[in-house]
Design a binder for these strands. Structure first.
Length: 823
DNA sequence: TGATCCCGCCAACGT
DNA sequence: ACGTTGGCGGGATCA
C-alpha cells in the first residue's frame, strides 16, 4: 500500500482482470452480476480504489513546488483572462484550498506526507491546469497542438483523465482531433457558435418539454425507481423519435470533428452536448443532475431505467460538469427539494441567442435546401449523409491516422472548407458568414440603442442603459445584446411597458397581451394600458419588472436556494433565472404572487437605477396595420414627460396589454422571436383594440407630420377577426380616438389632440419570451410575406441600416398564424 | 449519509 | 499484435 499509483495499479491488475472478465465490463451482452461481485470480491482483496495512503511518497510528483506551479497557473490572470467573479471565486476557492494544502506542506514536515488529497486530483483542478496551458482565443502563432502524451505527463495524470477533459472540450468544439494523440486547440473561438447550435438542437429536441415532463412526474408521484412509471416516462421521452440525435457539429468543423474516430457513440461528447443543451433551453438555466440524467437516459434506452444506469449517468455528468465548471460555463448550486437538496448546476456561461432570434432564417433556409425534411438537424448529421460522411472520413482517416501524423490541415479553423468537394461544406460556411455579420449588426444596433437611450430625456428609469458589463466569460465573443435577460416579468408577469429612445421618425405601438390575463381581456380590460413608447428601434425592448411579479415557478427554479453569496452582485444573473413558460396553459395557471423580496426590492429600485438589462420580448402574434396615423406636433414638454413617466408607472401595477409604437419604417427592426406560443383563445374586447391608437400619445411625436389617414377599420376588424382576437361579429371602432379608449390610467396624458403620423399597429399576443430578439430579419421572415415576394424579405433584411420600409397601406398577415412550436 | 468523483480495467477501435 | 480511446462502475472521500 505504498500508494504509488502505478504500483497499486499493477498490483491490483491481475486480480481485477480476473474478476472483471466475469463481471466488470460485460462482454457485450453479459450482464453485470452483483452476486458474482460480492462472491469474488473477498478473494481479491483490493479490487477497490486504493485507500488514500497516509504516508508520503518521496517520489511523488506532487511536490510543494508543483503545487505552487499549479496555483500560479490556475490563478494567473494573464493566462486566464476570461473569467470574472464567478469563476474567479471558483478558482479562487480552489486555489485557496490548494494553498492551504501547500501551507500544510510547508509548515510541517510530517505534513508533506499528506498525499495529494482527492480534491487536488480532481478533474476540475486538472482541467484548470489543462486550460491554463492554452489561450482562450488561439492565435495561429501559438502552439495550438495538443499532444495527449505530453500533456498527461506534464500534468502528471493518466492519459485517461486527459481524455475526459478533451472529450468535453471537443463537444464544445474548443478542440478537435487532428490525429492520433493529437488535438488542435481552438479555444473559445467557436464557442458562441457552438452554443448557438446546441441551443437550437436542444430546442428542436423539445428538451424544454422533456424537462417539464420529468419534473411533473416527479412531482406527482414521488418518483420511484424501478416503477413502471419510469419506463413509461422513458418511453414517452424516447418516443420523440429524435432520440438518435448524434454529435452536433459546427459549420466549418464537421469533418474535423467527425474525424475524431468513428467510435459510434462518442458518448461523453454527446452527453456533454446534451447536457449543455439542457441549460440553454431551460429557464431558469438551472439543471439538476437528476433531471439531466433522466433525460439523457430516457433518450437512448427507454427500457431499463435502472438504478445502476442512473448512477453511472450521474457519475458521467459529474465528470462533464467539472470540466464545464472549469470553463466557467456552469456553476454548482443546489435546489431545494421536498427531501433535502438536490445537486444542480446553473449556467453561467454566455447568454445564447436562439437561432430563431438571430439568424435562424439564414441558417435554416440554407440547410433546409439540403435537408428538406427537417430543420431540426441543421447541425446534426443527417442520416442520409452518414454514408457520404463516412467515406470522406475514411479517406481522411487514412491520411491522418498515421502515428504521429503531422497536422496537415492548416491550423485555422474554418477556412479549409473549400477543400471539400461536398457542397454541403459550403452551406455551413455561408451560414456562419451571415451569422457573423448579423451578430455584428446586432451589436451595432444595441450600441445605437443604448446610445440614444442615454441622450433621450424620455429615458425614464427603464431606459437607463446599463453600462456595458464586462463579459462573464469570453470577452467580446458574444454580442452585448446577449446579456442576461431575463429579468423580468417572466412568463406570467405582465409585460411592463417599455420606453425606448424616441425616434424622430415617429412612433408606433404594439400591444402586449399576456396570455395569463387573456380572460380578463376578453371581457373587460380596465387595466389595458396604453403605453406611449417613443422608439427608434424596437430591436430590443427593455423592460423593468412590474410590481406585480409573477412567481417564477419552475419546480426547480423556485426552490433554488440562491446560495450565491451576497457579495456577488448577481442581479442580472438572478434575474436571468426567470422562467418562460412555453406552455400557455401553464401560463394561465400560474398565480401572480410576488416572488422574492429581492425581486421586489429590485423592482423598487428600478424606478431609480433601473437595471435595464432586461430584455424580453413578447413573442406571439403580430399584426401590423399600417396607415394608422397619429401624432402631434408638440414636442415633449417636461410635464408631458413626467406624465408619460407616471403613466408608465401606473402601468406597472397591472398592465395586461401594452402597445409599442412602431413606424413602418421601423418595422423591420422589430424583433420578435419565432412563435413559441399558441395564439390562445384570447379575444380582445373591441374597446381594447380601439385603445391602441390612443396610445400614440401625442407627446411622443415630433412635429413632422404626414397626411392624416385613418386606419381602415375594416382592415383592422378583418385582421383581428382573422386571428381570432375578436369575435367575428364584433367590430372595432374605426377611428382611434382617445376618448374611446378605456385607458384607466392618467387619461389626462393622452388627451392631447393629435396630428397625424404614419405608423402601424402591431398587436402581440404575448407569452413572454425572455429571450432577446435581435434581428429584424426574423420578424419579417417569420411574420410577413411581403407582396414583393421572397425577395422582398431578403432585401429588407439585407439592409442593415434599418431604413427599409414596408409599403404602407398593406396589411401583412402572418401566414404562419397557427404554427406553433408549442404543443 | 449522501454527494462526489477518482481510478483504472478492459472492450472497442485503429493501425 | 499492439497502441489508443473511452465506457463503466467500485468504492474512497468529502461535506
Amino acid at each position: 500500500l505504498e500508494g504509488k499509483k502505478t504500483t497499486s495499479r499493477r498490483r491490483r491488475a491481475p486480480c481485477l482482470k480476473l474478476k472483471a472478465r466475469v463481471l466488470k465490463t460485460p462482454l457485450k451482452q453479459a450482464a453485470t452480476s452483483h452476486s458474482v461481485l460480492t462472491e469474488i470480491q473477498p478473494d481479491c482483496q483490493p479490487l477497490t480504489t486504493p485507500p488514500k495512503p497516509k504516508e508520503i511518497l518521496p517520489a511523488d510528483p506532487w511536490t510543494p513546488t508543483s503545487n505552487l506551479k499549479i496555483l500560479i497557473s490556475a490563478a494567473s490572470p494573464e493566462i486566464r483572462n476570461r473569467e470574472q467573479r464567478r469563476e474567479l471565486s471558483n478558482s479562487t476557492s480552489e486555489v485557496l484550498q490548494a494553498k492551504h494544502c501547500l501551507q500544510e506542506h510547508l509548515s510541517g514536515d510530517e505534513y508533506e506526507k499528506s498525499q495529494p488529497s482527492r480534491k487536488e486530483k480532481s478533474l476540475g483542478l486538472l482541467c484548470h491546469k489543462f486550460l491554463a496551458r492554452y489561450p482562450d482565443y488561439s492565435s495561429t502563432a501559438e502552439n495550438n497542438y495538443i499532444c495527449l502524451d505530453e500533456v498527461a505527463e506534464e500534468l502528471n495524470v493518466e492519459r485517461r483523465r486527459i481524455y475526459d477533459i478533451v472529450n468535453v472540450l471537443e463537444s464544445l468544439h474548443m478542440v478537435s482531433r487532428l490525429a492520433k494523440n493529437k488535438y488542435v486547440w481552438h479555444g473559445r473561438h467557436n464557442l458562441s457558435k457552438t452554443l448557438q447550435a446546441l441551443k437550437k438542437v436542444g430546442e428542436d429536441n423539445k428538451y424544454t418539454q422533456q424537462i417539464q415532463m420529468i419534473k411533473k412526474r416527479e412531482y406527482e408521484h414521488e418518483f420511484d425507481f424501478d416503477g413502471e412509471r419510469n419506463e413509461e416516462m422513458a418511453r414517452s421521452l424516447g418516443s420523440n423519435e429524435h432520440s438518435e440525435m448524434s454529435f452536433v457539429e459546427l459549420p466549418g468543423m464537421e469533418f474535423r470533428a467527425a474525424s475524431v474516430n468513428s467510435r459510434k457513440d462518442k458518448s461523453l461528447r454527446v452527453m456533454s452536448q446534451k447536457f449543455v443543451m439542457l441549460f440553454l433551453v431551460s429557464t431558469p438555466q438551472i439543471v439538476s443532475l437528476e433531471v439531466a440524467a433522466k433525460i439523457l437516459i430516457g433518450e437512448d434506452q427507454l427500457e431499463d431505467l435502472d438504478k445502476s444506469k442512473f448512477k453511472t449517468k450521474i457519475r458521467r455528468l459529474y465528470d462533464i460538469a467539472n470540466v464545464l465548471s472549469s470553463l466557467g460555463l456552469i456553476e454548482k448550486v443546489h435546489v431545494a427539494e421536498e427531501r433535502g437538496r438536490k445537486p444542480a448546476f446553473k449556467w453561467t456561461g454566455p447568454e445564447v441567442l436562439t437561432d430563431s432570434q438571430e439568424s435562424i432564417t439564414s441558417k435554416e433556409q440554407c440547410s433546409k435546401n439540403l435537408f428538406p425534411s427537417r430543420g431540426k438537424q441543421n447541425f446534426t448529421r443527417h442520416p442520409s449523409l452518414i454514408k457520404l460522411v463516412r467515406s470522406i472520413e475514411n479517406d481522411r482517416r487514412k491520411i491522418q491516422s498515421a502515428p504521429t501524423s503531422p497536422v496537415k490541415i492548416s491550423a485555422s479553423t474554418d477556412q479549409n472548407l473549400s477543400a471539400f468537394p461536398s457542397k454541403m461544406a459550403q452551406v455551413p460556411a455561408m451560414a456562419k458568414h451571415q451569422l457573423e455579420g448579423q451578430s455584428k449588426k446586432v451589436k451595432e444596433m444595441k450600441m445605437k440603442l443604448s446610445g440614444s437611450a442615454l441622450e433621450s430625456n424620455l429615458s425614464s428609469p427603464e431606459v437607463v442603459p446599463k453600462p456595458d458589463l464586462p463579459h462573464t466569460t469570453a470577452p467580446s465573443q458574444q454580442p452585448v445584446l446577449t446579456q442576461p435577460l431575463g429579468v423580468g416579468p417572466l412568463s406570467h408577469s405582465p409585460v411592463s411597458p417599455v420606453m425606448l429612445p424616441q425616434t424622430p421618425s415617429g412612433v408606433s405601438y404594439a400591444i402586449y397581451l399576456h396570455p395569463s390575463q387573456a380572460h380578463t381581456v376578453t371581457t373587460y380590460s380596465p387595466s389595458f394600458m396604453l403605453q406611449p413608447l417613443p422608439c427608434t428601434n424596437v430591436t430590443e425592448i427593455k423592460s423593468i419588472n412590474s410590481k406585480v411579479l409573477n412567481r417564477i415557478t419552475t419546480e426547480e427554479g423556485d426552490n433554488q436556494i440562491a446560495k450565491d453569496d451576497p457579495t456577488k452582485s448577481s442581479t442580472a444573473k438572478e434575474r436571468s433565472t426567470i422562467k418562460s413558460e412555453t406552455s400557455s396553459q401553464q401560463c394561465l395557471k400560474r398565480s401572480q404572487a410576488l416572488q422574492d423580496s429581492n425581486l421586489i426590492k429590485r423592482c423598487r429600485s428600478d424606478e431609480e437605477s433601473l437595471d435595464t438589462s432586461l430584455t424580453f420580448f413578447p413573442s406571439g402574434y403580430l399584426i401590423a396595420l399600417t396607415q394608422c396615423t397619429h401624432g402631434n406636433k408638440a414636442g415633449f414638454s417636461n410635464k408631458e414627460k413626467a406624465g408619460v413617466c407616471s403613466l408608465q408607472h401606473t402601468t406597472y401595477s397591472s398592465p395586461i396589454a401594452g402597445v409599442i409604437p412602431v413606424t413602418a419604417s421601423e418595422l423591420n427592426t422589430v424583433n420578435i422571436p419565432a412563435f413559441h406560443i399558441t395564439p390562445l383563445n384570447i379575444m380582445l374586447s373591441p374597446t381594447s383594440i380601439a385603445a391602441a391608437p390612443v396610445l400614440s400619445n401625442p407627446c411622443l411625436n415630433s412635429s413632422n407630420t404626414s397626411s392624416a389617414q385613418n386606419p381602415s377599420s375594416s382592415l383592422l376588424n378583418f385582421t383581428l377577426q382573422h386571428v381570432g382576437l375578436i369575435p367575428a361579429g364584433v367590430q372595432v371602432p374605426a377611428n382611434p380616438v382617445l376618448q374611446h379608449v378605456p385607458v384607466s390610467s392618467q387619461p389626462e396624458n393622452v388627451s392631447h389632440s393629435s396630428e397625424n403620423r404614419n405608423f402601424c399597429y402591431f398587436i402581440f399576443l404575448s407569452c413572454y419570451s425572455p429571450n432577446l430578439l435581435s434581428k429584424s430579419q426574423t420578424v419579417t421572415e417569420n411574420f410577413f410575406r411581403t407582396p414583393g415576394g421572397p425577395n422582398t424579405v431578403s432585401s429588407l433584411s439585407a439592409n442593415s441600416d434599418g431604413t427599409d420600409r414596408i409599403s404602407q397601406g398593406t396589411l401583412y398577415i402572418p401566414q404562419r398564424k397557427l404554427e406553433v412550436s408549442e404543443d
